[in-house]
Design a protein around this nucleic acid. Structure first.
Lengths: 124, 124
DNA sequence: CCGTATCCCAATAGATACTG
DNA sequence: CAGTATCTATTGGGATACGG
């Protein structure tokens, strides 16, 4: 797939988008936020980087039970495009790539922790 | 569809679920929270109920640009099953049903507002 | 080690028509 | 007015194989 087009997710038609812009545009903003963390493995990636500061993709592949390399790479790319994480590529032989949360990514964590708190408080 | 089965969403296999329960289980909780608000019209419904206190389904149908009655009803049902909103049915002729946020639903709003704030602060 | 391409399936959403 | 049923379209995720 053409990487430059991948993020042209248009899950919300324009008529709807304008409708959201009513009083405050809350819906569009929350939706954008949710899009960034939507994807089966994204939360795992984010929380692991939050805990471990910096990780290689091979480590993530090992640590995240059940993820395939394809999906891992795909989600890492999307997180990168949404500028939540940084990617460092250290040349070839041996290939070595590191990922870490950047400022924007760290700024997102309080939101996730608030969501966590809500779900924890309202279990059952 | 059998309504009692609809919410048996199992988007996360058991192996993965256990993996999430590592240090703190943050991922599972955040995921549960996201599931509650996942659905194309749910945020619109929640924010409108947050603003207007109580609304009839016909009002929501008019106000939410582009939603069909089927999807509206479906999402209202799911929000009800997740106990974020209350539904009051006032007999027949004329049919009249009202929806409103309950305590649990109101407790969710700070999370959404935090998400909104994040997206707003990090636009572009 | 890291990433990509292709093909497939299941889940979600939408269109439409119908009932009390 | 409120809700349901049926069918179809889209999309996100997974399996697998291949390339630098």
């Amino acid at each position: 797939m053409d990487p430059s087009r991948r993020h042209e997710k248009v899950p919300m038609p324009n008529e709807v988008r304008s409708a959201c812009l009513g009083p405050d545009g809350a819906v569009v903003h929350v939706t954008r936020c949710m899009q960034m963390i939507s994807g089966r493995w994204k939360l795992q990636i984010l929380f692991r980087l939050y805990a471990d500061e910096v990780l290689r993709s091979s480590q993530l592949l090992r640590d995240i039970q059940g993820v395939s390399q394809k999906m891992l790479t795909q989600h890492l790319r999307e997180l990168e495009e949404d500028r939540l994480i940084d990617r460092s590529d250290f040349g070839k032989q041996p290939p070595r790539v590191e990922y870490r949360l950047n400022d924007r990514g760290r700024a997102l964590m309080p939101v996730l922790l608030a969501a966590r708190q809500f779900a924890e408080d309202h279990e059952a």
